[in-house]
Amino acid sequence: MEAEIDYAVKMIRLMKRLGLTSIAVRPDAQHAYRKWVQKRLAKTTWNSGGCDSWYLTEDGFNATMFPGFAATFQKLLGDIDLHDYVATRSSDEVTAVG
């Protein structure tokens, strides 16, 4: 949770510095990350073995767990890659900022 909060604070500071009013994850970046997560989760005990798990939705999707150590998650959130986002500046123009 702390890594996510740190990332959000860094993003807000970056937005202020660049004069951005909104920012959204690009769909292709989100898709690539979700695919990476689900591929790694497929090898875990939370997703394999045919057991019921509170981590899984009724259709077997795991949207809860990160497939690795907390340190790995913190490293992934260490830097903001603006290529993964589309931002709106105060002039209401939608701009790729990366």
Rank of each mutant, 00 (worst) to 15 (best):
M1S: 10
M1W: 12
E2P: 14
E4K: 12
I5S: 12
I5W: 10
I5Q: 13
Y7G: 06
V9G: 10
V9A: 12
M11D: 09
M11S: 10
K16F: 12
K16I: 14
R17K: 13
R17I: 08
G19L: 12
L20N: 02
A24P: 01
V25G: 05
V25A: 15
V25Y: 13
R26E: 15
D28P: 01
D28V: 15
D28W: 10
D28M: 15
Q30H: 15
Q30G: 10
H31M: 13
H31A: 05
Y33F: 12
Y33E: 15
R34Q: 12
W36Q: 08
V37Q: 11
Q38F: 15
K39E: 09
K39H: 10
K39Q: 12
L41K: 14
L41F: 03
T44E: 03
T45P: 02
T45N: 09
S48L: 06
S48V: 01
S48E: 06
G49M: 09
G49Y: 09
G50L: 05
C51G: 07
C51I: 09
S53D: 03
W54N: 07
Y55D: 06
L56N: 06
T57R: 15
F61E: 14
F66L: 02
P67D: 03
P67N: 03
P67T: 04
G68H: 00
F69H: 10
F69V: 06
A70C: 05
A71D: 07
Q74T: 11
Q74C: 07
Q74V: 07
K75Q: 13
K75S: 06
L76A: 03
L77G: 02
L77E: 04
L77T: 04
D81R: 11
H83I: 08
D84K: 04
Y85N: 00
Y85F: 08
Y85R: 00
V86M: 08
T88D: 02
R89H: 05
S91R: 07
D92Q: 08
T95P: 00
T95F: 06
A96D: 05
G98L: 00
